[in-house]
Computed example of a mutant assay.
Amino acid sequence: MIDKDLRVSVCSVQRWRQTWGEGGPRALRSQGPASLSRLSEKQFAQLEAEPVKGPTAHGWEDQRWTLSRVKTVIGRCFHLTYTIQGVRKLLVRNGWSRQVPARRATERDGEAVAGWVKEVWPCAKGSRR
């Protein structure tokens, strides 16, 4: 019953009960995050300065920052290897969030976009075969 209410396995409930029996309620307290950040606060401050330089300073042609690119910058600057999910967790843990434009750019040229979709996109897309 408890396992279904908490949406955990029966084994977890049994392990919690055993832990509680051996150490009381204090034994069930959180031990903190499963892993500590491998970047120090000073290193993370250095990492935060990198996006200001822009992706072109790091060798990318467009102006997008992706998790993969942040992962590459971490590897180049600090000689550490993170997974994509590890980079996401690192950024979220330090207050970063996914950024999405609220509206379209005011400089957008609708006719140019329509022309590109009609003429260039079919060639770039290619056939399915």
Rank of each mutant, 00 (worst) to 15 (best):
R26L: 13
R26S: 13
R26Y: 06
L28E: 14
R29P: 01
R29S: 00
R29F: 00
S30K: 11
Q31E: 02
G32T: 04
G32I: 01
P33D: 15
P33K: 13
A34G: 15
S35A: 07
S35V: 02
L36W: 02
L36D: 15
L36A: 15
L36Y: 03
R38P: 06
L39I: 09
L39S: 06
S40C: 05
E41K: 05
E41S: 12
K42E: 14
Q43H: 11
Q43C: 08
Q43K: 07
A45C: 04
Q46V: 14
Q46R: 12
L47W: 01
A49V: 06
A49I: 02
A49Y: 08
E50M: 07
E50F: 04
P51T: 08
P51Q: 12
V52Y: 02
V52E: 14
K53S: 00
K53R: 13
K53L: 14
G54S: 00
G54N: 08
T56W: 00
T56L: 00
A57E: 13
A57V: 04
H58L: 01
H58Y: 15
H58D: 03
H58K: 02
G59W: 02
G59P: 06
W60A: 10
D62W: 04
Q63P: 03
Q63I: 06
R64N: 11
W65L: 10
T66Y: 15
L67W: 10
L67C: 05
L67F: 12
L67Q: 13
R69K: 13
R69E: 03
R69C: 01
V70C: 09
V70R: 06
K71S: 07
K71P: 00
K71C: 04
K71Q: 14
K71T: 00
V73K: 08
V73M: 09
V73P: 03
V73G: 06
I74T: 02
I74V: 13
R76S: 07
R76P: 04
C77F: 05
F78Y: 09
